[in-house]
Amino acid sequence: MPTVLVPLAQGCEELEAVTIIDLLRRAKITVVTAGLDENPVKASRGVVLIPDTTLDKAIQQDFDMIVLPGGLPGADNLNNDPRIHPLLKKMHQQGKYTAAICAAPKVLAHAGLLANKSATSYPGVLEHMNIPQLQFIAAPVIKDGSVITSRGPGTAIDFALELIATLVGSEIRDQVESALVR
């Protein structure tokens, strides 16, 4: 089964984080949540999340995908963490998937992963950044090669379902979606 790393930063968007974790686990994908330190994560609306491990421990493992929840200041905290950009670049160089939602696509941009790509984000996050050859598309989810981006809390289910389809196929994706009774 594929393995996915979801780094959880203080101030992340809880609806996005929990939706990603929950739906991927429903698809029997191994999800490891990792805090940037050993503390519980207080999300943007005050929900407290308890990560499975720390990022220092998690980066010793191999993952098929890394998914960055958005929210502020969560996306900024991910962007400012000295371990995140090298991790994203390493995964990208290995042909593994990098994904981000809401404000977190800017972390992919700062790591240099959105040049010559199509991507989306929360309104106003990417449009004014000077990203070479970025084609910004205001769609719920954009997949361009091994990079997957999404708009925000309202697109979290669609985003998670795309991650499932990418990792384990459309049949499992459809089974998970059907059980959600959308």
Rank of each mutant, 00 (worst) to 15 (best):
3 T>D: 05
3 T>M: 09
5 L>E: 13
6 V>R: 05
6 V>W: 07
6 V>E: 02
9 A>P: 13
10 Q>L: 13
11 G>E: 15
11 G>Y: 14
12 C>K: 04
12 C>T: 14
14 E>M: 10
14 E>R: 06
15 L>M: 14
16 E>A: 06
17 A>D: 06
17 A>E: 02
19 T>E: 08
20 I>S: 02
23 L>P: 10
25 R>D: 00
27 A>P: 07
32 V>E: 14
33 T>A: 00
33 T>F: 01
34 A>Y: 11
34 A>K: 08
35 G>N: 05
35 G>K: 07
35 G>I: 09
36 L>Q: 03
37 D>H: 03
37 D>A: 03
38 E>W: 00
42 K>L: 03
43 A>Q: 03
45 R>T: 06
46 G>H: 02
50 I>K: 01
51 P>C: 08
52 D>R: 07
52 D>P: 08
55 L>F: 11
59 I>E: 05
60 Q>I: 08
60 Q>H: 10
61 Q>R: 15
63 F>M: 08
66 I>W: 01
67 V>A: 13
67 V>D: 00
67 V>S: 11
69 P>Y: 02
69 P>H: 03
70 G>T: 03
72 L>N: 05
75 A>C: 04
75 A>D: 01
76 D>V: 10
76 D>I: 11
77 N>Q: 04
79 N>W: 06
81 D>G: 05
82 P>G: 10
83 R>N: 13
89 K>S: 10
89 K>F: 01
92 H>G: 00
92 H>T: 04
94 Q>W: 04
97 Y>R: 02
97 Y>I: 15
98 T>A: 08
98 T>G: 01
100 A>N: 11
100 A>D: 11
102 C>G: 03
104 A>P: 14
104 A>V: 12
108 L>W: 09
109 A>W: 09
109 A>L: 14
111 A>R: 12
112 G>I: 15
116 N>P: 04
117 K>H: 15
118 S>F: 00
119 A>S: 13
120 T>S: 10
121 S>T: 10
121 S>C: 11
122 Y>H: 14
123 P>W: 06
125 V>K: 08
125 V>H: 06
125 V>S: 07
125 V>F: 04
129 M>S: 07
133 Q>K: 15
133 Q>L: 13
134 L>T: 13
136 F>R: 13
137 I>T: 14
137 I>H: 14
142 I>N: 07
142 I>L: 12
143 K>G: 01
144 D>K: 07
144 D>R: 08
144 D>A: 13
146 S>K: 15
148 I>H: 06
149 T>G: 06
153 P>H: 02
154 G>T: 08
154 G>W: 04
155 T>I: 09
156 A>E: 05
160 A>W: 10
161 L>A: 07
168 V>R: 04
168 V>G: 02
168 V>Y: 08
170 S>I: 09
170 S>Q: 14
171 E>F: 02
173 R>F: 00
175 Q>S: 06
176 V>E: 02
176 V>Q: 00
177 E>R: 13
178 S>H: 07
181 V>Q: 04
182 R>E: 02
